[in-house]
Simulated assay, not measured.
Amino acid sequence: MKSGARIEAFLEMMSAERGAADNTLASYRRDLEDASEHLGGRLADADAAGIRGYLDDIASRGFATTSQARKLSALRQFFRFLYAEGLRSDDPTGILDSPKKERPLPKTMSEGETGRLLDRAAAEAQAPSGDEIPGATRMHALVEVLYATGLRVSELVSLPLTVALRDERFFVVRGKGDKDRMVPLSPKAREAMRRWLVKRNSDPKLAESLFLFPAASDSGHLPRQVFARDLKGLAARAGIASAKISPHVLRHAFASHLLQNGADLRAVQQLLGHSDISTTQIYTHVLEERLLKLVNEHHPLAD
C-alpha cells in the first residue's frame, strides 16, 4: 500500500471511528500530504531522520511553532495508526521532541517615551490652578512609584499609607504568596508621594483610610482598572499611543531599562518579586543586546 493510500485509510479511520469533523480531516490531509511531498511520496516508509528533516524544513519556511506542533501531532497520529494496523513495526515520531513554543517578548516603552510620560504627569500635577485634570496629583504619584519600583499593579494600588509616611529610600512590599521584598524609591517618587499625601489628607473622606490611594470601592483602595484607564489617558496626552501602554508595560519598562543600564538579572528578579529566575529570563534579549553593544564598542578586533 503506497503512502497516498495509507493516508486515505488513516483519514477514513479518523472519520468513521473518531467522528473527526470535515475541517479536521482537511487539516490532517494538508499536513500529511505536505510531509509526503517533502519525503518524495514515501511518508509511510519515513524514518525518524526523515521526519526530523521535514520539521526542520517547515521551521526554515517560517511556520510558527504552533503550526509546527500541529503538523507533528498529525504525523504522530498517522504513524500510531500504521503501527496499530500492523503496517509498520515502529513509530518514527516516538523519539521526536515537540517544537518549543516561543515566549513572546514583553511589551515595553523606550526610555524617551517613559520620560515623556513622567514629565507630562508632573506638569499636570504641578499646574498653577491645582488639579486641572482630576486626579493629576494622584496619577503623578502612581506613575513615579510604578516606574521607580516595578511593582505589580495590584501591589501598587493597595500600598499602605505607611509607605508615604516614612521618607526612606526603600520600603517593604508584600507580593505574591505573601512574600515580602524590599524595593527602592527614587527621590522623584518620594516627592510625588509627599505632594499626593498633602492633597489626600486635605479630603476628610480619604484622610482616614489606611491605603495610600484610597477610593470608594469594595476593596477600599483605587481599583486597578481605574488606574489602567487613567494611565491610557495620560499617555494619549503625552503623545504616546494609548493602546501601547498599561501598568504592566510600565513594569516591563522598569525591568528593561535597569538591564539596559547595567543591572544584574538576579537583582531584577528580586525587585520584580519573581520566585523563579526563568520568569525573569524573558528579558534576556535586553542582556544580549547590551553584551553585543559592549563587544562591538570595546573589543580591539571589532570593526
Rank of each mutant, 00 (worst) to 15 (best):
R195L: 08
R237G: 10
E124Q: 13
L151N: 15
A141P: 08
L87F: 08
D180M: 07
S110L: 10
A74H: 13
F79V: 05
Q68Y: 11
Y54V: 01
G115F: 04
R76K: 13
S89V: 09
S202W: 02
D45P: 00
S202E: 15
A59Q: 13
T149E: 00
N201W: 00
L11M: 09
Y54A: 01
P106V: 01
P106L: 02
L287M: 04
A267P: 11
L292Q: 11
P300H: 11
L259F: 04
F170A: 05
R166V: 07
F10P: 14
T149R: 11
K205C: 06
R174D: 03
R200Q: 01
P204M: 14
A136W: 05
Q281E: 15
H285M: 12
Q269P: 00
S246K: 03
A46R: 01
A235Q: 07
L151F: 14
D97I: 00
Q225D: 11
G41E: 11
L222S: 08
G150K: 01
G233T: 01
L146W: 11
K179W: 04
R88E: 11
L210W: 02
A243I: 06
R18A: 01
I7R: 05
S217N: 15
D303C: 02
G239D: 02
G112I: 02
S3A: 13
P104W: 14
A267H: 06
D34Y: 01
L291W: 06
L197G: 09
E113F: 03
E33A: 00
R224H: 10
G262F: 00
S278A: 12
L142N: 13
A192K: 09
Q281D: 10
H221N: 12
R266D: 10
D180N: 09
K107M: 02
L87S: 15
H257N: 15
F227N: 12
D303N: 10
P160Y: 13
P99K: 01
T137K: 14
H38C: 06
H221C: 08
M193V: 04
D303Q: 10
V163R: 13
L32K: 11
T108H: 07
A123E: 15
S36V: 02
S256Y: 08
A49L: 11
G53T: 04
A48F: 05
D47M: 06
Y54R: 01
D203H: 12
A164T: 04
L222T: 00
A123K: 06
A5C: 04
R138V: 00
D230H: 07
S67T: 03
A164P: 07
